[in-house]
Design a protein around this nucleic acid. Structure first.
Lengths: 197, 197
DNA sequence: TTTGCTTTCCTAGGATCTCTAGGTTATATC
DNA sequence: GATATAACCTAGAGATCCTAGGAAAGCAAA
């Protein structure tokens, strides 16, 4: 019997494709096996469990998203970089809803696997790099990075969950949110604040 | 045989408790039934399916979160209200991680069920009310509401997913994020922007 | 070629899960 | 008490996850 040439990576990609097509929680070992023309038991030589597979999909997504962002922001700075960064993030989430959702699951990823996955760490570094132009110093820098990442993630997550019902198009709100964040970064409030009106 | 007194609401609450204890994706019909001292088939008189149950948990969470926020912001305004609003949101997510995660699933909730669940809509109204003090007019108001909700959700979601690795405590970043959002709302950038440096 | 090792993929099967069909029995109402 | 309406049950089909152990494909060396 000819071999299918399975590998952990190919199984992960098949799972990721399935997640994008039918939704992450419809990704089952059986379905992935079926897509690969293989029996479900065969997958367990490459992937420890369904949970492990989901973790791998999450890491794949993080890596891919990071690469997209790196490409989009290359050679840009300031507001240009901010917009390129944010748009690349959002576009990835739109194009790969299943993979993106995998990144939202509480951390249960095999540590040794995560170790040589550059995605998440590199993404944070990229964010730091982008913010250098705004002249922030630690710890404000870290706080700003976290604020940006929260907003980007929150926006696309709410968008995906149907949180922005009707009325105004999300695209408009997105553009304005980036305007606002840019303005905010240029006038980052000083640390010691009492109660100004 | 004595009856258990099941009802759609009690089933939902049992599912929500289970979600908080063991994680949303470990909530099964069998487990919920076991917790209620009942056979799994009995649940289907009250809840259409597992997916339906998850939808109900999501609505329950939205309602509960809204109530907490309403209580926390009552009688406050301006930055006080903003902080109370945000802290209530985040505390709910911390106290009820499973329920909160249920709200993140793509919308598949029974429309007629959602109709008389005041949670989501009321939450948006509360956000609008809180922002009145900042003197924003439409469509900036809607954009600001969406930005705030995105940031709040994104922050707690990243926090829950282990996104804020080490170093600086999330609590510090949270306080600073609220400072920043307050400053932003007080100086919301005008709509037509070219390329200022 | 032959021998042997390693890895890949398989069959078989236990445990658990979702959900349906249909039967009992508790409870409320007359 | 009689009766209707639920609530809850048993039984079972179909899928799922995952393990154990076997067959066979590919590779290396004699």
């Amino acid at each position: 019997m000819a071999r299918a040439g399975l590998t952990a990576e190919r199984v992960t990609i098949a799972g990721a494709e399935l997640a994008d097509e039918v939704g992450l929680d419809r990704v089952t070992m059986s379905q992935v096996a079926r897509r690969l023309g293989v029996k479900d038991a065969s997958l367990y030589s490459h992937v420890r469990s369904l949970e492990d597979l989901r973790g791998r999909i999450a890491l794949l997504a993080a890596d891919e998203k990071t690469i997209r962002i790196a490409e989009a922001t290359a050679g840009r700075s300031g507001k240009d970089a901010l917009i390129a960064f944010a748009d690349a993030w959002r576009e990835y989430a739109h194009q790969h809803p299943g993979r993106y959702m995998a990144t939202q699951t509480p951390i249960q990823i095999d540590p040794e696997l995560a170790a040589d996955a550059p995605g998440p760490r590199r993404a944070v570094e990229l964010t730091y790099g982008m913010l250098r132009a705004y002249g922030l110093a630690e710890p404000d820098l870290t706080d700003a990075v976290r604020l940006l990442r929260s907003t980007f993630h929150g926006f696309v997550a709410l968008e995906a969950a149907g949180g922005f019902a009707h009325a105004r198009s999300p695209q408009h709100s997105w553009v304005r949110a980036l305007d606002a964040l840019h303005a905010l970064l240029e006038h980052w409030p000083p640390s010691r604040e009492g109660d100004s009106s």
